[in-house]
Design a protein around this nucleic acid. Structure first.
Lengths: 230, 230
DNA sequence: TCCCGAACGTACTAGTTAGTACAGACCTAT
DNA sequence: ATAGGTCTGTACTAACTAGTACGTTCGGGA
């Protein structure tokens, strides 16, 4: 009660209220990411905020409501990063490499996001499907990739049977794995995928991987115009 | 009590006991994979077996003991698959493609294994690290890959700065993602990664991807003898 | 100055869940 | 046949946890 301010209004919410909600969301993000939905404890979240459990229910209604708010927050953050990427002036392969590295950098520095995505998949995306914002806004991440790939195919340097969603999947798979399966991988193969000393090599590798795949001329069967994925 | 047999002994365990334990493990695998460790209910597992909760505690001691038994069981299964792979007669790139496709096929047909690995990572592999068997036996999966890659590098067709563990990571990442992130991916991008119609294309793609990456001659900087990963 | 609603804190409850006490059935060996 | 260990079922409990009832404080507008 020492830092109470002269509550200035802002869209129906007190400044203090906004800070309280932000405080709760930050702590809740860590708690859900670390323990899963069922494993997370509302009491534990409350204890680690400046406020009380009462407030969590006051602002978010239920444990599930809080979880959904956490999910929307982390998905909004990745949208923010994606919007900041500029690849207009680059050649298609340079652009592809840049996009891959940006995704790699985001995921490896946002462990909580990846953990929450894992958790959400355990629950078959049943919460995520309730969020129109995420479904509507986060699919647009593909647009940029589509332009780059279309350009590369038109210029004849990219294969034509792998589309933007496929490429996004490849990049995401690589970047997610480093974070999501870090612990079992380290336990079994004794190699920490996020070790700082390896970061640069791993970043280069995802670039190599996606460019090599898209520019590959020696692959098994078919070519740019046949055997389209899907 | 209708199907009671004349309990024949086998290594200290009744035949009936073995069947009971197997029954519990099978049901528990599904329950843990579907709901996570905290979300899984011992009562629910008991209700879906032919036996009772009492037996779960009799054989496995605790919820955690049961979970560990489940984990060991699914890891033992993947070891079994890995042991069955033969690549001696193949060229290194054929062998690599075969190994990648086998991993892809295993993971896409063993959803529960992937889910349990995800769950275990949420818990920072703290249960897995307790299992000496998994740590000792499952690391040997790399051996086969090591031979193939060494052969490819010696023949001058593979790059030399990516080792067996890196390649295993690439293959696992791709194969895991299809299963682990299936639901969020489908929700956002409206594409089911496990749709049967796409299976062949996706299997071919992981082969292309890993072979293209390893045989890539046009990559960013360095070559086979410099900039080694790690 | 005093009313009103937003924001907040404490103490509680109803329901759930991991784990157990106790009793009994079954098989094998002697 | 009977002792003793393995195996099984029922009914219970102690502890935990999401959610709430109720009261209080605060700032701003009339």
């Amino acid at each position: 009660m020492t830092d109470r301010l002269g509550d200035v209004r802002d869209g129906g919410l007190t400044e203090r209220a906004i800070r309280t909600q932000g405080d709760i969301l930050e702590v809740a993000t860590a708690e859900f990411a670390a323990n899963g939905f069922a494993g997370a404890r509302v009491d534990e979240i409350a204890a680690r905020t400046r406020t009380t459990k009462r407030m969590i229910y006051y602002y978010f209604g239920s444990k599930q409501g809080l979880y959904l708010a956490v999910l929307e927050r982390v998905y909004a953050q990745i949208r923010q990063v994606e919007r900041g990427i500029q690849v207009d002036e680059m050649t298609p392969d340079e652009a592809l490499r840049t996009l891959a590295e940006a995704t790699y950098d985001h995921h490896t520095t946002h462990e909580e996001f990846i953990q929450l995505v894992s958790i959400e998949n355990i629950h078959r995306a049943e919460h995520l499907r309730q969020s129109e914002t995420i479904l509507r806004e986060n699919a647009t991440a593909i647009t940029l990739l589509e332009e780059v790939i279309e350009r590369g195919v038109r210029e004849g340097i990219f294969r034509g049977d792998v589309d933007a969603v496929d490429v996004h999947m490849i990049i995401s798979a690589y970047a997610c794995f480093h974070v999501a399966n870090r612990h079992t991988f380290a336990a079994i193969f004794d190699r920490d995928l996020l070790e700082p000393a390896r970061q640069d090599a791993h970043r280069r590798l995802i670039g190599d991987l996606v460019v090599a795949t898209m520019t590959d001329r020696s692959r098994s069967g078919g070519n740019g115009s046949t055997g389209r994925v899907g």
